[in-house]
Design a protein around this nucleic acid. Structure first.
Lengths: 202, 202
DNA sequence: GGTAGATAATTGGTCGACCGATCAATAAAA
DNA sequence: TTTTATTGATCGGTCGACCAATTATCTACC
């Protein structure tokens, strides 16, 4: 009554991963159903069996990248231990390293930004990711404030600063690699954030 | 011997502006020669008379947006007067306001980021813009250091911090308008930058 | 426990639409 | 009359979507 049960989620994942690889290789404007099917080693027709249309595949792809991304961010921050300062530094270092080394995620993510301007579904996925990330960073900052290591500041605003700085510097690292390296960027980002949060010793 | 002289640059500008409007309205993936021609109120054929192909039009469009952008940034910063701190604040405020109010430039700019991943000509244009902007901000910071208002810091690194922060926070403003407003963002960006550059009063 | 029937899974070809590019023909200015 | 500027139709190619046909897998019955 139900043959090949449980294959559907596997195929969907397979297609989504292929889509991400295609996006990283050829970009958003170069993405075609044909390429995705080839990359996933399935026929073209099957794409429409698991997804209503191309846009649905793109949405699923952004969903997947997004999930990966905040899993990694959370892991990196947790690796920093208990000290809020070390947690922030671990988080900053991980994000910058990710943008530089694990290009695939970062590339795809930037690709989507342009499309988000005109697609509210994509925008919503992104907004949710940033909301979660700001809360995560905000919690670390709040912890630092409670511990008396950081000055009193709106934790979510501070999170927006950290997140924005990391994104913006990652962009510069990506598009203008000659300007400065990852190590240098990591150093001055950490410096900027920690000074921003440091208690004023006036 | 040379009829209609001087029309060429006008047409080129007309086409480029139409392209920018189309990009802002329909996005990069929705851009077609037909739409550009319609928007510029010319025939399709003429586009290939003034530009070799679609990519050339895109390059010209990014060039134009880029030129607009750093003209505006330079103007805003100069409006801040002599005080380096006021200059930086003027610059930050102008950038954030631009991303929020004058959507057209910002939208097109973000659209291009995705394509830069796969097109080195676009990447080069962007790199040049960021290089100029970092030098501009770096000069302001260096001035502040000489005047004894800022702590000793690598001026170009500080410029990368300012630029990155502004870009990153602009992204959050754009894609997640519910998180915080322009005024709030301006406040904590200025705060972060000025604390980052403040002399330590230990 | 093997077979028949039902249904999910998958294929590859096909369709109309639209894309960017080309070009012969024409209009207009010098 | 010469040269530039401009048009609109047209070309081959490719895209996303659709679908009839086939295969593979599970269930129910004998």
């Amino acid at each position: 009554m139900s043959p090949k049960i449980g294959v559907a989620p596997v195929r969907r994942e397979q297609i989504v991963r292929a889509t991400i690889r295609c996006l990283a290789r050829d970009g958003y404007s170069g993405l075609t159903m044909k390429k995705v099917a080839r990359e996933a080693r399935v026929s073209q027709g099957i794409l429409h069996y698991y997804f209503t249309d191309k846009r649905a595949i793109l949405v699923a792809a952004l969903d997947a990248v997004t999930a990966d991304l905040d899993r990694r961010v959370a892991a990196a921050q947790a690796r920093g231990g208990r000290d809020p300062r070390r947690r922030l530094r671990a988080l900053i270092g991980a994000c910058l390293a990710l943008a530089a080394a694990e290009r695939e995620f970062w590339i795809v993510f930037v690709e989507f930004w342009g499309e988000m301007m005109h697609d509210r579904r994509l925008r919503a996925i992104n907004a949710a990711l940033y909301d979660r990330t700001r809360r995560l960073i905000g919690a670390v900052v709040a912890r630092g404030i409670r511990d008396g290591r950081f000055r009193r500041v709106d934790a979510l605003q501070a999170a927006a600063v950290v997140l924005g700085l990391v994104d913006g510097v990652s962009l510069q690292l990506t598009f203008d690699p000659g300007a400065f390296g990852v190590a240098e960027a990591t150093r001055f980002c950490e410096d900027a954030v920690l000074r921003y949060l440091a208690k004023e010793a006036r």
